[in-house]
Design a protein around this nucleic acid. Structure first.
Length: 418
RNA sequence: GCGGGCAUAGCUCAGUCGGUAGAGCAUCAGAUUGUGGCUCUGAGGGCCAUGGGUUCAAGUCCCAUAGCUCGCCCCA
């Protein structure tokens, strides 16, 4: 049997309702915050990601789906959304047209990783970016938007972790101090963390190894290295979040995987997910535009892993509630090409009712069963009797109540309030 | 890229000491002609993941390959 590619999944009719629901929440909440959707292509020149994400990151080194196209250009299936969006903003001069952009995106992304729960090779992200403000109120707006989406989906048990990496000066100073501290404990660190130490020392801070945690607990804290500007920014964010009643935890060891973050970084976690407990995260990236050769432009944004949201949603909602049941199942003894039958179906569909008919010429009884199985509100019984008297028979399946209605007065029948 | 586990009907799973497959649910059909759910009766449905090996004999034991899954790494 031919199978789908490893790490990819079909979203079946049974599950699509969950996706439609979540996607509806994305649209509704984004719109209520004044965010507009921006769709970028699913692939980009490889350069877009190498420049922005950082050459030393695992994403770029071993997780990208890159290939040479027929004109020998290196192309990459997008592994994340911020870089393409920034590319699009610059290329289309959007920031020149308006000095503040509120944008969101949603779609599939690709990383060549070992699949596990909540992690696939083709996965989906929703993200929002606020571009053009350096002030803490924009950080707060983004975090608030994210929280409202989670609430809109019905997810209540999530944690908001925040931290500040400070501006470049603060971050560099801290990096040096951290390296100095860790060098003294190198031999005690796990193998993984020694490797991180070489490539990206900040990442040692979120090791899961017990011994590493012990060591980094005594390491200098980034928060002690923030300069005046960085402190003011961080305090501003915290103040607004508090006033918005957003319950956050300051987590000085939170650093994010992508190189382009500075100042505020944050992450949303849920305990429902096992090891992949992060449902989303983001932060401020004031330098990213300059990486693309554009004028420095302050920005802040975040992304959710939609598969992870769906996993949680499945646990807290009854799928049935999202399914639109048919209004009418037509149980017919007439020929499938009978004029009376066809004009009836046409009429009902024109009334915007969800109408299902039998296509397998099955027995009257089997059609009744089917109407029950699909959860239709009414079975509409149709045969020679009805045809000859220009009537229909409607049976309410919930309680079996049956009534006869004239064909010409169907428009006046209220199918909802029955 | 590195470890552990799993695989039998559409689904959830049995399958003894190695002797060529079972249940429940679902599906379909009947239980006096055009009336569902409950009940009863019956039916269909399996290359036992794939490929090798051991054996008189393999769903069962061994190896390999894909896949899924749980961790690590990484990240959303």
């Amino acid at each position: 049997m031919i199978q789908s590619v490893r790490g990819t999944k079909d979203i079946l009719p049974d599950d699509i309702h969950l996706w439609n629901f979540v996607e509806g929440v994305f649209k509704k909440i984004s719109s209520s915050y004044g965010y507009s959707e921006l769709r970028t292509p699913i692939f980009e020149k490889t350069e877009v990601f190498v420049r922005s994400i950082g050459e030393e990151t695992d994403i770029v080194n071993k997780e990208m789906y890159s290939f040479l196209d027929r004109s020998n250009e290196s192309i990459t299936l997008r592994p994340e959304g911020t870089a393409p969006l920034v590319r699009a903003v610059i290329q289309n001069s959007l920031i020149q047209q308006s000095n503040l952009l509120r944008l969101w995106y949603y779609g599939p992304f690709f990383r060549y990783e070992r699949p596990q729960k909540g992690r696939q090779r083709q996965f989906h992200q929703y993200g929002a970016e606020c571009i053009g403000s350096e002030f803490p109120e924009s950080d707060a707006e983004i975090i608030s938007l994210a929280c409202d989406i989670l609430k809109g989906i019905g997810i209540k048990n999530f944690k908001v972790l925040i931290n500040s990496l400070g501006n470049n000066d603060s971050r560099d100073k801290y990096r040096e101090e951290l390296i100095a501290y860790l060098s003294n404990h190198l031999s005690e660190l796990s193998e993984d963390s020694r490797r991180r130490f070489e490539k990206n020392p900040l990442r040692v801070l979120d090791s899961k190894d017990e011994k590493d945690i012990e060591i980094t607990n005594s390491a200098p804290s980034i928060l002690d290295f923030l300069d005046k500007e960085s402190i003011e920014h961080f305090e501003g964010v915290k103040k607004i979040l508090t006033k918005l009643d957003i319950d956050f935890t300051i987590h000085p060891k939170l650093v994010r995987g992508l190189d382009y973050y500075n100042h505020t970084v944050f992450e949303f976690q849920s305990s429902e997910l096992g090891a992949q407990d992060s449902i989303g995260g983001g932060g401020r990236y004031n330098q990213l535009f300059t990486e693309f050769g554009a004028k420095q432009t302050p920005a802040v944004g975040f992304a959710f892993g939609v598969e992870r949201l769906i996993i949680i949603l499945e646990k807290i909602i009854e799928k049935d509630k999202l399914v639109q049941k048919p209004d009418i199942f037509i149980v017919s003894g007439l020929n499938p090409d009978d004029d009376y039958y066809i004009s009836l179906v046409k009429k009902l569909r024109n009334m915007n009712l969800k109408v299902i008919t039998d296509l397998n010429r099955r027995s009257f009884k089997a059609q009744m069963k089917e109407s029950n199985r699909v959860g239709a509100k009414f079975a509409l019984l149709l045969g020679d009797d009805e045809k000859n008297s220009n009537n229909i028979t409607l049976k309410r399946l919930e309680d079996g109540f049956q009534q006869t209605i004239a064909f010409d007065s169907i428009e006046n029948f209220n199918f909802d309030n029955q």
